[in-house]
Design a protein around this nucleic acid. Structure first.
Lengths: 349, 349
DNA sequence: CTGTTAGCGCTTTCAA
DNA sequence: TTGAAAGCGCTAACAG
């Protein structure tokens, strides 16, 4: 398609992916490709007359730069990936949204990769990293050692809700311990002395932290009894565990997350158990639906925290040093107790 | 970094994005880059000895091909984008998941782009298309004309839940009319003669179709009265509309979707309205939560339909003709009525 | 301020 | 079967 003699590079008319190339715009405007690139990216000053001519040609040809080519040339994709365990969990959606908005505002796109199973988290993260400049990693189920090994490999990265061996890796944590303390205190004030924890997936770091937070709290309060019941992270896990929760004889149950709490709430209703009359129920996360359940759910609200935006700030300063101004590489956010009807009298409409 | 004399191309040791390049693997294995490429992509036959040597070198250097470079060279990204209106709606999540799984099985990645507002749908779709090979478009709120104009521009594309002027554009539709008919018939059999439709967003094509389906059904049933109440697509829309729904005096209300129905259900409970005793409530979509509400929601279940996988099949045959074997370019799926407690006696546990 | 010249890292004819 | 060479479309020094 091109002639062997060097001078005729400008000759080819089509590109494989369709649409005009920068070369054709250059031809049409009677300038070099470099000039076209300059006016369209506007880094350096360009003669206004020529600028107009180029823009017109581009407009007329409906020119759309090939991003892949740009990426290869610049070495940056202006895209980051976010690895999340489960698209179906509203908690992760909210992080995803705030992250996406923040990144977009800085000209970055966001790729979503769902790991789905615990085993896939590392592989998905590696794959995701290859097509972008950085990754936001939410991998609650990966082993600590595997995580520490993975993280330098996929840097730049910001890790959510995990503690890392290497302090140079950016991270944003949620103070679950504090959240749990707020919740337990609330339940104590309501007179509960026998609590149950409806646990999350055993491999989940979030679960482990919450569990150990509870254990710690119980240790300092001799009057408190604490039972643990096996659960999970989804609606059906809460549904399934209802009988076992009742068997503990606890007067209040704290579910691993809101979804589990909602599943439990539903089952308790089916069984004719009055909530909060006979049993108080609390969730964790603060998803929107917690405000629409019957009764409304008492929960530890981390949805308001804008975790995604914080994560982006930490990542952005690694990508464009100087442009962003986050002061630290590690953020710790503290969630806030949200009191619903599931642990006390239902609020009047 | 490279010497001016032509023969020394192999000399550079680093790449901007970090990690070894194919050139370094070639050096290490003592072969040409072409050979490395062949070995690693395995299209043609390669001497087994040399193959082993290359693989070893690649392994040893931890070589990871730069996907951007490959894309530029091949002209294909092996990635498709899906444009969805709202990541927070479980209905779209389920499409996203089945699509992602199906695409992954064929070696394609999926990019997620959330439009969020009606106005952004077209722009987001155009942007999304630029970094990938095709798009799955879910744009319920775009004007028909705008959609018809957009679609050829971003082809290959498969459009969900919209009718198009151009029959050559692949699409998968859901037979809302049929779904509505099933629902109305169910309500009629329960004795309802006065129905209310709690409408979706006015610009939503899904809403318009459901509305017109209902109008058509009412026209053929003189005994039926049908009221329409303004609503929306989210939990709070259902919550807000409760009073107006009650004012219509209808004995059964069909909400635009499950989220709206759940919001309504919650508000009705707050107001002390017995469901289904005083008012029956139905949703649309069949999200998982509909099975966990109190009472459980009667709804038109399209979550079971695997819409995402069907969409992928239609797209795949455009991308890799011959490899896929979908028989048609247009699919129409029929949802199934799911009967819950919100329109009749609650099922026993 | 503009054009020329080199690549970015990979795949892919085309000869050998 | 292998290597040389060209080129995907774009950006970025470097002269002029």
């Amino acid at each position: 398609m091109t002639t062997p003699d060097g001078g005729e590079k400008l000759e080819h008319r089509t590109r494989r992916t369709g649409g005009p190339t920068i070369t054709q715009v250059a031809e049409a405007a009677g300038v070099s490709r470099a000039t076209v690139s300059r006016v369209l990216n506007g880094r350096t000053t360009v003669d206004p007359t020529i600028g107009a001519r180029v823009r017109e040609a581009a407009e007329q040809l409906q020119y759309r730069p090939n991003l892949t080519a740009r990426y290869l040339s610049t070495g940056r994709t202006m895209t980051v990936s976010v690895v999340i365990p489960d698209l179906g969990n509203p908690m992760f959606q909210s992080i995803l949204r705030s992250l996406t908005r923040a990144a977009e505002a800085d000209g970055y796109g966001v790729l979503v990769a769902e790991a789905r199973t615990a085993e896939r988290e590392a592989a998905v993260a590696r794959t995701a990293r290859r097509q972008c400049d950085a990754v936001v990693l939410i991998a609650p189920r990966m082993q600590a050692e595997a995580l520490d090994a993975l993280v330098p490999e996929i840097a730049p990265v910001v890790v959510l809700n995990r503690s890392l061996a290497d302090p140079r890796i950016a991270s944003v944590g949620i103070d679950y311990r504090n959240g749990m303390a707020q919740l337990v205190q609330h339940l104590e004030e309501l007179g509960h002395r026998h609590l149950a924890y409806l646990a999350g997936p055993p491999s989940s770091a979030a679960h482990q932290e919450r569990q150990s937070a509870l254990d710690g709290l119980a240790r300092h309060r001799p009057s408190l009894r604490l039972h643990t019941v096996e659960g999970g992270a989804a609606l059906e896990d809460g549904h399934r565990a209802a009988a076992q929760v009742l068997e503990t004889g606890a007067t209040a149950v704290m579910a691993f997350n809101d979804l589990v709490a909602l599943g439990l709430l539903f089952r308790l209703h089916q069984l004719g158990v009055d909530v909060p009359g006979e049993l108080s129920v609390a969730g964790f996360d603060g998803i929107e639906l917690a405000r629409y359940s019957v009764p409304t759910l008492t929960t530890v609200d981390q949805e308001e925290l804008d975790t995604g935006a914080v994560a982006w700030a930490l990542l952005h300063r690694q990508l464009d040093p100087g442009r962003s101004s986050a002061p630290t590489e590690h953020a710790v956010l503290t969630p806030k107790l949200l009191i619903g009807g599931s642990t006390g009298p239902a609020p009047r409409p």
